[in-house]
Amino acid sequence: MTTLQLPAGAPGARLLGFGSYRPRRRVTNDELAQRMETNDEWIQARVGIAERRWAEPDETLVEMSVAAGGKALAASGLDANDIDLVLLATTSPPKAIPGLAPRIAHQLGVPRPGAFDVNAGCAGWCYALSAAADAIRTGSARNALVIGGERLTDYTNLDDRATAVIFADGAGAAVVGPADEPTIGPVVWGSDGDLHEAIAIPENETGMSMAGQAVYRWATTKLTDTLVEAMRRAGVGPDDIDVFAPHQANLRIIELMAKRLKLPERTVIARDIVRSGNTSSASVPLALAALLESGEAKSGDLALLLGYGAGLTFAGQVVVLP
């Protein structure tokens, strides 16, 4: 039997820079209260959102992803020519065909990279980050651009008070490159497909529906183990975590997870949901980009990440911030 040759790869992968794009239009709870039976107090108490961004027609998924990707490239110090893998995590493409990663790469001037879209619900960016890190470690890619972009409002009934107050738009991205020491920890990912109907677009409908109680129960009971396992596999513990950046689905879930993990006081907890709403696979990179921009998180910080959502899917990992 012929033995095939494999590339050398890299000992590890690391995050090199983040970028984000937030749509121009800010939608407050009071504005929503004018179009539906809801109010600021109810929304803040249930999900912790004060405002969110809704994309205008010209802020397409491609345009937002290109903007976030371009900023991540600039932050990384790399050039578009250095990138040979582009991943777009999204659940809300306007059409099934074609996938958008090749076009985004083209608009960014990345020459002929491996490029594909990842749909793993709100866990998509964490799935894609893991795929990119593995590709770099195995030598399938040298440097990767990993984008999470969403226009969830295209798939939300904006008059439905159960979902319109929650879902929003935006894009976040990071560049991943090779490293002598691993600084992107092993992913702990999985899925609970028996709960596939919990977050879905129902038959003959165009807007998403969510079984709020079922998802809340799943997130607050099952996912703490995922986070603990992600730390264990990376060889760190709660006391080592500088930044906790889970998917921004609901502030109460975020606070409960932080409490159950017994993270130390000093750990910075991402609460980007307060001003960004739930942006599905864009939420983790958007939150990290914001924390790095504000200086609340700094280069070298150890961050615990978790994506989870439609599928149901989940993925957690520990990373060192660029």
């Binding site: 108490a45 249930r46 709020g212 109680q213 809340y216 009971t221 609901n250």
Partner: peptide
């Protein structure tokens, strides 16, 4: 007690 707190109570 809201619907999400009911879930926490159930847990």
């Amino acid at each position: 007690v809201d619907s999400l707190s009911m879930v926490e109570i159930a847990t």
